[in-house]
Amino acid sequence: MFALLAHEPTIVVLCGSTRFMAEMTEANAQETAAGRIVLAPGCDLKTSHSLWHDPAAVEALKPKLDALHRAKIRAAAEVLIVGDYIGTSTRAEIEYARRLGKTIRYTHPEVEETTE
């Protein structure tokens, strides 16, 4: 039998460079243990995989993954920026989340001031 929660858990989406996949795995564990539902990048195009082994496959997949990640941002109540680097893609995700009025948190709060 499943235990009922007193309230629906908060949904948080992890954003950041895929160079921080190990940190995202840790953030996923921490957020889940805190009782949150976690949405995260499902593909790391920097790691070899049969789905994106050739450059044409990568180029075809990128826009689909970007659209999927924006849908995850829309579905989440909060965005957690993982890592100590904010690149172009992550900056765009932060701006998108801000336009939607999402709560934004950072694993490295010192990088927040670089995104204002």
Rank of each mutant, 00 (worst) to 15 (best):
P109W: 07
L5S: 14
G16M: 03
P41C: 08
S50V: 10
L4A: 12
V13K: 09
T107E: 05
K72T: 01
K46N: 10
I86Q: 05
M1V: 13
D54L: 04
A29R: 15
K64N: 07
A33K: 15
W52H: 10
V13Y: 06
V12S: 03
L4H: 09
K62H: 00
T90R: 13
V38T: 05
K62V: 10
L61K: 07
V12A: 08
E59C: 01
E78D: 13
T47F: 09
A57L: 01
S89Q: 07
I86P: 00
E110C: 06
T115P: 03
T10H: 06
K72A: 11
A71E: 08
L14V: 05
M21I: 08
A33N: 14
V111G: 02
T90G: 07
M24G: 01
T25H: 15
F20N: 06
E93L: 06
A77P: 00
S17E: 10
A29Q: 15
G16Y: 04
R19H: 08
Y106D: 12
A33H: 10
Y106I: 05
H7K: 13
C15L: 10
E78Y: 08
T18S: 10
H69T: 03
G16T: 03
A3M: 14
C43V: 14
A6F: 07
A22Y: 12
P9E: 00
S89R: 06
A3E: 09
A34W: 05
L61N: 02
M24V: 04
A40W: 09
G35M: 03
A77K: 14
I37C: 05
E112H: 06
A60H: 08
S89I: 10
A67T: 03
A40F: 11
A22T: 09
E110A: 15
V58Y: 04
D44H: 07
D84H: 10
S50M: 11
L65G: 01
A76C: 08
V58G: 08
R91N: 10
V12Q: 01
G83H: 06
E93A: 10
R91G: 02
G83W: 08
M1A: 14
L4P: 00
G42V: 01
L45R: 00
T103N: 07
L5C: 08
N28R: 15
R99Q: 15
L51H: 11
M24C: 05
T25K: 15
D54P: 00
E110H: 08
C43G: 00
A22V: 13
H53C: 09
M1K: 02
C43S: 13
E113I: 12
A22Q: 12
I37P: 00
L5I: 03
M1L: 13
L4T: 07
T47H: 12
L14C: 00
A97D: 02
V58N: 05
G101N: 06
S89T: 12
C43L: 09
H53R: 13
K46F: 14
T32H: 12
E23S: 13
E31D: 01
G42T: 12
E113T: 13
A56K: 01
E112C: 10
S48P: 01
V111I: 15
A27W: 07
I37V: 13
I81G: 01
P55E: 06
A67C: 00
L5P: 06
G83D: 09
P55F: 00
A34G: 04
P63Y: 02
E112V: 05
L68R: 14
A27K: 07
E110F: 11
C43N: 12
V58W: 05
L5T: 11
I86V: 15
K102H: 09
L39G: 03
H69L: 14
D54V: 03
A34Y: 05
L100S: 04
